[in-house]
Every structure is written in structure tokens, then in C-alpha cells.
Design a protein around this nucleic acid. Structure first.
Lengths: 331, 331
DNA sequence: GGGCGTTGCCAAAACGTTTTCTCAAACGTC
DNA sequence: GACGTTTGAGAAAACGTTTTGGCAACGCCC
């Protein structure tokens, strides 16, 4: 009676075989209703809890999928990634639980190798870099991976990717600003080299080149708080008449800076931003936002991964961006 | 050559036994340097990665500790818990990695039973409730637990707890406000029934009763944003001359409301708050804050848990609160 | 050269499940 | 009553490691 009860104890307690107990509890084999009831009662009585590790070894599956989080130590994490990750994992968790899986978030430095030690059936890698160490770890370990966002280099050919049309939406948004009168549409961004920041910057510059909008990019300097950069952008000589914030933190910084400088929105300045968290904040003006729909993306990624684990083929994964025009852009 | 290489493949490739390969890779047994080099080379060559599940079953340890997150769906989560959890898991992760463990965050509804399926050696339960379902799950499953914060009911006798002196610090803080002239020190809080909210409220009321400060408590109504409650508190007839915010979200709401109402800080109003995240934000006034030192608490909890897993006894766990007086209280 | 500790390696037994295969009994059907 | 088919249950083989206990071989000391 020292250690916990195992399936063997349930078997001997009921006088049945281990096989029958396993079948009765999992509902897999053929077991009469009467026997099943006996087993259930005995298991309850003994406080039997199947050992997930042993079950995992035998079945080859542990029912756990992981999401590595890698930017934890960077300042950028708090501004850009955390809101996205929070929404993403929320959506992924809901779907995973629906489908009898657990989702774990593994804070992991790319080189610590920790990710290799965690028992997992599969992994969702968010915004992988061109030669992503974590992604490589997973593939080497042989566990299925679904990627969120960035397309991958050809090396990892067959990793399904949840695609995004964020660039298209950004162009649509900027185009609308320009079509309704804005002549200096600026971008408030960061200097980090992650793919979201880079892609957004590139899309903005391309759009400028294509439309004749003067490219005005203000980037946070290292160790600078967003409000300072926003204020610098808005107090220069050629003040922009519209600004898109890379994320909600920067967007709110724009609001704060405008307030401090006495600029009215949308009269003196139009403001838009990417926003992944709830939009019911107490902004002074309803904001035009573009959302990647992080929660939906998480759910799609988790669903695809669980499909793969179940042996199903997955098709093209895509979550459309959502674009909402509100008063901060005059409509 | 179909599936991944196992330890057996390394053994046959080198002509050594499985035992020797295991010893060479783990550094546990007695293996000559020459043999070890041969094994390492072969393992590298074959891309061998030990299966964490099999290793876990054999050794009884998977090297993973978990932190369940349970409030994800509540609005309160975003205001109060998320900053604390973020800092806490950050500290816990750092320490876990230092000591060769991985930390996973398990988003778990208390009744979903998911927590029972994740292979774990131990768990850190943050702010457990009086009859905490997750805590009970862990104990039933027989895995060691360390609790953060709330003392536990006697049922779970021997769970180590990271203690806090938040109540003492709050009394010190409030006392200082009163000693330096504040006569109506209010509290901006929520209506949630979690232990942090309840304990803070109780400590405040006790302090009021003991000192004669009129108890002024403003609580967010359900579905209300903090700014609205803050503005209500500050625009009433008997406006308080100092307010303590339950968390950084509420504290910032107080700043926003004061700004909107044209109140100067600390002239018209002193503001203090609990704050767990970085304090280098761009507040208009340097703020007096009280910090539970969430990151340190996470590290202490993780360290204690790993000690327990290693068979060591742990003593009393305590992380002192940090109290910093700044300009928002006139000092 | 006998006793004894050390070194280097291995065979085999765990670890606690799931799963496959087999088997007996019960039940219909002609 | 012989012959499928279905039902209920069990024996035993995985699953891929770690760990225990043992066994030679070697060197050292007296």
C-alpha cells in the first residue's frame, strides 16, 4: 500500500486481467457492461490514475502538443509577441481540449535543447526564422510540426504552414487612407529583425514606392519606450497625417503622444494599428485596426497538427486577416 | 532505416551493448574515454535522440515541471494575473533551465482533467484556492507540489508554500501615506473572489479600522473597464486624496482618470499600486509601487520543487515584498 | 602467487501501460 | 447436431530506455 495503485492492482482487486481493465477504462476492446462497471468501481475505490508516461510509451502518443516561446527575454516580446502569443495559445488551447489533447507552452531558449526533453506528440512553431533551431530540433526528433506564419526555406519542405494575408491587408488599409486624403502615411515600428517586423516594413516601403507616398518610418531605438518614439515622430517638421502602429503597444503610444501634443484624432492625425487583444479598451477614439486573428490561427494550427497526428492529410491552411475601419481614420 | 534511430541502433553500430551506450551518453556508469568517444560519434552519425518518454518511464523522471494557468478566460486574468504569471514563469523558467529541467505552462480548466494527462514530475500551483481542484488532482496523481502564495487548508498538510508578506507591506505603505498627511486613502479593486483580491481588501479594511482612515473602496463592476471605475472614484463628492491600485492595470487607469479630471499628482492625489512588470514605463510621474517580486517567487518555487524531486528537504520559503517610494506619493 | 580493489563492459530485469492475437463459450442457423 | 459468427476475456509481446548486479581482466601489495 506504499505507492500509488497501478492497473495491476485494479486487475487483482477485481480478479480480472490487466487487458480487460485497460479495455474497460479506455473503452477500446469488447467488455460487457457489467464488467466495465465493476472495473470502474474498483478503479474509483483504489484511486487509480493511469500513468501518462507508461501509457505514452505503450501507445506512442501522449496527447500533448507544445508551443515553444523563445523571445521571452527581449523587450520586443512584451510589445509585439506577448499579445499575439496570448491570443494564439488561447485559441489553440480551446481547440486542443475539444479534441482531447493538452497544450503546453514551453519557454525555451533556442539552443538550450530543453525542447528535446519534453514529452510531446507534436509542436506548433510560431513565426519560425529562416534557419529555426527549434524547428530543426523537432524535425530531428521526428515529431510533426505545424508552423504559424512565416513561409519556410525549402529545406523543411513538408511542414504545413498557416498562411497569412497580412501584407495584402496592410496594403488595403494604407490604400484606403491615401484614397481618403492622407498624404503622409507613416509607420511606427521597431528595429528588431523578426519576420513580422521585417515583412511589415517591407510591405510598407513597397506600397510607398508604388503609390508615391513618402516613406516615413520611425523605429524605436534600443531601450526606448514607445511613447518617446511616437512623440518624436509626431513632433518633427513634416508631421505625418496618418500613422500605422506595428502593434497595439505602439498604437497606444501614438494615442498618448497625440494627446500630449494636443493633436486631435482623426482631425489632425489618423491612427491605425495591428491589434490582437480585445479591442474594447477605453481608447479616446474608436480605432481602425488590422487583426491577424491570432486566436483563430492558433485553433487552425492546433487542429491541423492533431489531424496530422491522427494520420489525416491537411490541406492548405489559411486564416484571413480582419480589417475594421473606425473613427480614428474618419470612418 | 524507416524510423528514427534508437539506442539499440547505436549499440549495434558500435558493437557495444545497450548498457554501455546508455552509460556513455548519460555519463552515469563506468565507461572508458575511448569507448565514450566512439559512442558519441556513432550517436551523432545516426542522429540519435533519446526518447524522453521511454527514458521517463525507465527512470521515473521526465525532467519537466508544470505551472497550470486557470484564469485564462476571465477578464480579471488580463488585469491582475497575466502580469504576475508572466513574471513568475519567467523566473521559474530561468531557474528550471539552470537545473536541467524544463518548465511547461499548462492552460487548464480546473475540471477538464487535462492536467492529469501531461507527463510531469512536479507542479507549481500559483495562488491555490481553498479547495483547489488542480492541487487535488496533483496530489491524487502523486506528484509533488509547491504552492505559491495562499496558505492552504489543513487537508493538504505537507505542501510547501512560498510565503508572502504582502499584507505587511501594504500596511507599511498605507501607514506611510497617512503619516505624511493623507486623510482619505482609497482602494481601487475588483469584485473577483480570488485570494489576492480578497486578502488585499481585507488588509485594507483592517488597516482602516485600526487607524481611523475612512474605508473607501471602489470595485470594478463586471464588464467595466478600469478607467471608468477610476474616474467614478475620483469624481465623487468626497474625493480621496490617495488611492492604491490593486494591480498595474488599475494603477494606470488611475493615472488616466486623474489626467482626464485635471488632477495633479501628487498635489491633488497620491497614487500607488501593486506592480509586477518592468517599472520603466513612461508614466507621467514616477510611481510608488509595491512588488511581490513575482520572478523571484517563481525561481524560489521552482528551486524548492526540484529540491524535493531530488529528495532534499526544503525549509521555509519566503520572498520579501519590495516597496519603493517615488514621486507619486511625494517622496 | 594469493588476496583484493578497480576498471570496463554486459545481460537482463525493471518501468506501467496498450495492443495484438488467441481462445473458449454462447448463440444462431440450416 | 454440425457449423459459422459473435461475444467476453486473457496471455504475452511490445514500447525504448535506465538501472542493477555480476563477471572477467587487470594491477597492486605483501
Amino acid at each position: 500500500m506504499s505507492s500509488r495503485a497501478g492497473i495491476r492492482d485494479v486487475a487483482t482487486a477485481t480478479g480480472l486481467s490487466i487487458t480487460t481493465v485497460s479495455h474497460a477504462l479506455s473503452g477500446k476492446g469488447r467488455v460487457s457492461e457489467k464488467t466495465r462497471a465493476i472495473v470502474l468501481a474498483a478503479a474509483q475505490e483504489l484511486g487509480y490514475q493511469p500513468d501518462p508516461i507508461a501509457a505514452g510509451l505503450a501507445s506512442g502518443r501522449v496527447g500533448v502538443i507544445g508551443v515553444p516561446v523563445v523571445h521571452l527575454d527581449s523587450r520586443h516580446w512584451g510589445h509585439t509577441y506577448r499579445p499575439y502569443y496570448a491570443a494564439f495559445t488561447g485559441g489553440a488551447t480551446m481547440l486542443a481540449v475539444e479534441r482531447e489533447h493538452a497544450l503546453v507552452v514551453v519557454p525555451a531558449a533556442p539552443d538550450s535543447g530543453m525542447i528535446r526533453r519534453v514529452p510531446l506528440d507534436g509542436m506548433i512553431v510560431v513565426d519560425p526564422e529562416p534557419n529555426d533551431a527549434i524547428l530543426a530540433d523537432c524535425l530531428r526528433r521526428g515529431i510533426p510540426v505545424v508552423a504559424d506564419g512565416a513561409p519556410l526555406d525549402p529545406g523543411h519542405g513538408d511542414v504545413p504552414v498557416v498562411h497569412s494575408d497580412a501584407d495584402d491587408s496592410l496594403r488595403t488599409l494604407l490604400g484606403r487612407l491615401r484614397a481618403t486624403g492622407s498624404r503622409r502615411v507613416a509607420l511606427l515600428t521597431g528595429t528588431e529583425a523578426d519576420s513580422y517586423t521585417l515583412d511589415t516594413g517591407a510591405a510598407y516601403r513597397e506600397w510607398c514606392a508604388a503609390t508615391g507616398n513618402p516613406p516615413v518610418v520611425e523605429a524605436l531605438q534600443p531601450d526606448e519606450v514607445p511613447e518617446v518614439a511616437a512623440e518624436r515622430l509626431l513632433s518633427g517638421a513634416d508631421r505625418p497625417d496618418a500613422v500605422h502602429g506595428l502593434n497595439e503597444t505602439y498604437g497606444e503610444a501614438l494615442l498618448a503622444a497625440a494627446r500630449r501634443l494636443g493633436l486631435s484624432i482623426p482631425g489632425d492625425l489618423r491612427v491605425t494599428m495591428m491589434c490582437e487583444t480585445s479591442e474594447d479598451k477605453h481608447w479616446e477614439v474608436p480605432l481602425t485596426v488590422i487583426s491577424l486573428e491570432a486566436a483563430a490561427r492558433g485553433a487552425v494550427a492546433a487542429g491541423a497538427l492533431i489531424d496530422i497526428l491522427a494520420g489525416k492529410e491537411v490541406g492548405r491552411l489559411h486564416v484571413p486577416t480582419r480589417l475594421v475601419f473606425r473613427a480614428s481614420t474618419g470612418a
